[in-house]
């Protein structure tokens, strides 16, 4: 089962068998990682460049580990995007990387569409590690793997995605993946943080946590960035926490065995209460991180099985 292109730029457009293939492959890497073994011959001699125009610790480390466990030579490049003319520099960077014969290019950028633009200009396989407000495909895959391992399926589950949906690429990728796989997706947040016409993506919108969480199997919390408050979309952290922060009382409205997820890093006391975040039974937050490495190994593996270069 091949991916539609040699890149992974978005979840939107993937079909259920392609998603299932990646999840099955990731499942095998979970077992490999837990056994303490590696598979260093798979990407031996290949070069993976982590090109990050935006700060990241978790995702970059996860890709780095995934690449190294498969035997690739991994190089991290952090580029400040604020001080330079973005469009021109991005193309310059593409030219430079192409000259280095890089094989796998993992890109994070604060502008939606930047990885797609790079993909048109380089010979490497481009993996989107988060672009602006657009998509974060490997996060959605790792979330799906985490859910599938716990619930055995994605189809028919009620998944509530709560918080700053407007600015969240994690939310967009998850919406595409989960609706494609037959989950019922709800988004919950104040109207100022819900994007226009989001129902067209196949979700139901709620502005009240109690109503939106009722009967939910999975509760996915999103990070609320402080700058959203500065921009005036939310009056204060205490009001946000009162109405949209996940605490035990609100979680009690969800299904009795509902599980809690968060892409990290968390703002405790803003979007999530510590008692919920650290609940060893309900919280999957640590498990998500473990699944992240396995999913990224699966993506690197899958892309490496395609005819490698334009020739």
């Amino acid at each position: 089962m091949n991916l539609p292109t040699r890149h992974l730029l978005a979840i939107e457009g993937l079909h259920p068998p392609q998603i299932e293939h990646l999840l099955d492959l990731a499942e095998s890497y979970v077992l490999l990682n837990r056994s303490g073994k590696t598979q260093r011959d798979l990407l031996r001699g290949r070069t993976l460049i982590n090109l990050f125009f935006e700060d990241s610790t978790r995702t970059r480390t996860s890709f780095e580990l995934a690449g190294k466990r498969l035997g690739a030579d991994v190089i991290n490049m952090s580029v400040s995007s604020s001080s330079v003319n973005k469009g021109e520099t991005l193309l310059d960077t593409a030219g430079t990387l192409n000259a280095m014969n890089c094989d796998l290019l993992v890109v994070r950028h604060d502008q939606s569409g930047a990885p797609s633009l790079l993909a048109q200009k380089v010979d490497a396989s481009v993996i989107n590690a988060g672009d602006g407000l657009h998509e974060h495909p490997t996060q959605a895959l790792l979330d799906a793997l985490t859910i599938r391992r716990r619930r055995g399926r994605l189809e028919g589950l009620i998944v509530a995605i709560c918080g700053d949906v407007l600015h969240s690429r994690v939310a967009r990728s998850n919406i595409h993946l989960l609706t494609t796989m037959g989950s019922q997706v709800r988004v919950i947040g104040p109207p100022t943080l819900i994007p226009a016409e989001v129902t067209r993506l196949g979700v139901t919108v709620f502005h009240d946590m109690d109503a939106g969480l009722a009967g939910a199997d999975i509760v996915m919390m999103l990070r609320l960035q402080r700058e959203r408050m500065v921009r005036g979309l939310v009056p204060s952290a205490r009001e946000y926490f009162r109405f949209f922060g996940l605490d035990s009382e609100k979680l009690a409205k969800a299904a009795p065995d509902a599980l809690v997820m968060h892409p990290g890093p968390m703002n405790r006391g803003v979007e999530i209460d510590s008692a919920v975040a650290d609940d060893p039974v309900r919280s999957l937050i640590r498990e998500q991180v473990e699944m992240g490495v396995a999913v990224r190994m699966a993506v690197l593996d899958s892309l490496s099985r395609r005819p490698w270069r334009n020739s």
């Binding site: 005036g232 939310v234 009056p235 204060s236 009001e239 109405f243």
Partner: peptide, 14 residues
């Protein structure tokens, strides 16, 4: 808005 100054939303929910 806070202080009725027209700059930042007040805590309407609370």
């Amino acid at each position: 808005t806070r202080g009725c100054r027209g700059e930042e939303l007040a805590e309407m929910g609370l």
